[in-house]
């Protein structure tokens, strides 16, 4: 999809964004401690931000000067609908994770995305998602005691209740 002689769809815009972003970072790096001394906390950030500005500038210039557009179309080859939808799914996941909690959000995410990608088969999607989620829950929550946001499911309390049910609390 991307090669050097031809410019892909959206390539120039992406380089421009990188260049502008690098400029912002350079300005921010200058703000850390200015040209105070070689050992100031801002010395390395300024040097690398400058390297970013120069390299992204060269990339942008190069792309402007040499390349002709190739036959790619942005919403077909670079960012087709399927990728946009999946990006939206993960954004939704990130937003819902804290209010809804880990278990419901993950189940929702897995089922919806498997259904979407497969286009059908709700039983299959539910079984696979539930199975995978149980495995992840066992490894991360039970073995590695990672306390994921619990949200609407009071899983820590349920777990403690289970703990008491089998052989009492620790």
């Amino acid at each position: 999809m991307h090669d050097k002689i031809h410019r892909s769809a959206g390539e120039l815009a992406f380089y421009a964004v990188l260049f502008i972003f690098s400029l912002v970072l350079l300005w921010s790096a200058y703000g850390i401690s200015g040209f105070e001394s070689l050992s100031s906390p801002g010395a390395l950030p300024m040097a690398v931000a400058l390297a970013m500005v120069i390299s992204s500038g060269l990339i942008l210039l190069d792309s402007c000067r040499n390349a002709e557009r190739d036959s790619t179309r942005f919403f077909r080859d670079i960012l087709p609908p399927v990728i946009i939808v999946m990006m939206l799914f993960i954004t939704g996941y990130a937003l819902l994770l804290v209010p809804l909690g880990f278990l419901p959000t993950s189940l929702l995410f897995l089922v919806v995305s498997i259904l979407y990608l497969r286009r059908g088969g709700i039983v299959f999607a539910l079984t696979v998602s539930a199975g995978a989620l149980i495995a992840i829950y066992i490894v991360f929550r039970l073995i590695f005691t990672v306390l994921m946001p619990s949200g609407i499911v009071p899983e820590a309390e349920i777990l403690a209740a289970f703990g008491r049910m089998f052989g009492g609390a620790q």
């Binding site: 999946m86 990130a94 993950s106 897995l110 995305s113 498997i114 990608l117 497969r118 990672v146 994921m148």
Partner: peptide, 15 residues
């Protein structure tokens, strides 16, 4: 199948 693998990779990445 990638249709299953990709959502799983994404979830594992988040966790």
């Amino acid at each position: 199948p990638r249709t299953v693998l990709i959502p799983l990779i994404l979830l594992l990445s988040i966790v």
